[in-house]
């Protein structure tokens, strides 16, 4: 079996688990974050935007790193499945970046008194959005699929320069945006009843993202392998020689003997 066919079969077993995990974590995280976590002593209830803002922003970065990893696998080892994963993931990353920017702007109005400033974190995230859009547009801009894939892969690798800039922007240019909530070395600067739902939301977003990437990669696999026999069998399209009802019944009789 080819790699895409193997992936297709395996991913159909993983998907129900991933969706369940995503839904459970997102539901608990949402109810906890929206209704049960205590209001922030300075920001009041507007701080509840954190539960969608931080997960979207984290996934925006993770997705870009996934694109870069796929780019290396595709460019070096010519593994087409990696390119299909990148094709499937790019729009999700673009949406996550847009959602992080939007929820951040909306949060900025009551908290900073402005929906936008050219702060280093905000600016580098806007550049990230343009990088995603560039990757998506470049992929479709060539007559041959392989050229589009190569160009998109190279842009994803070049765009990796922006990732450390986003991460350290809050430390290098300390203006308005606050530093990271979760770090490996220190406890979060908020009570557990606030950060546990945030952790649930982040993990829920990861599960959701993984499931959605698999789901979209499966569509991309079907699209690219549409001429293959396994796809036709999967879609219950009867083989050529048994296309008429008569031929099918003859074949069925043959098998009984």
């Amino acid at each position: 079996m080819s790699a895409p066919a193997t992936f297709f079969a395996a991913s159909s077993r993983w998907l129900p688990w991933l969706w369940s995990l995503a839904i459970i974590m997102l539901l608990i995280g949402s109810v906890w974050g929206l209704a049960f976590a205590p209001a922030d002593y300075q920001q009041g209830n507007s701080f509840r935007i954190i539960y969608v803002h931080v997960p979207a922003a984290i996934l925006a970065q993770s997705c870009f790193m996934l694109l870069a990893a796929c780019a290396v696998i595709f460019l070096v080892w010519k593994i087409k499945l990696a390119d299909m994963v990148a094709t499937a993931a790019a729009p999700i990353g673009a949406l996550m970046t847009a959602l992080a920017l939007f929820s951040g702007s909306v949060w900025g109005i009551p908290t900073w008194g402005t929906w936008w400033i050219w702060d280093a974190r905000l600016t580098s995230m806007l550049i990230q959005l343009f990088l995603y859009l560039g990757v998506i547009v470049l992929r479709g801009a060539f007559a041959s699929r392989d050229s589009g894939s190569r160009a998109a892969s190279i842009l994803a690798l070049v765009g990796m320069v922006n990732i450390p800039i986003i991460k350290y922007s809050v430390d290098w240019w300390s203006t308005l945006h606050q530093p990271a909530t979760f770090t490996l070395s220190e406890a979060p600067p908020m009570p557990a009843s606030m950060w546990i739902p945030l952790l649930l939301m982040v993990m829920g977003f990861y599960a959701f993202f993984t499931a959605l990437v698999l789901m979209r990669t499966r569509v991309e696999v079907l699209r690219r392998e549409s001429a293959k026999q396994w796809v036709r069998l999967l879609l219950n399209i009867v083989p050529e020689r048994a296309s008429s009802v008569h031929a099918a019944s003859v074949q069925a009789k043959d098998e009984r003997h």
């Binding site: 929206l34 209830n45 507007s46 509840r48 935007i49 803002h53 909306v106």
Partner: peptide, 12 residues
Amino acid sequence: MGGHAVYVWSAW
């Protein structure tokens, strides 16, 4: 949402 309904609900 303590007066922050517009912000919280539009983001969510």
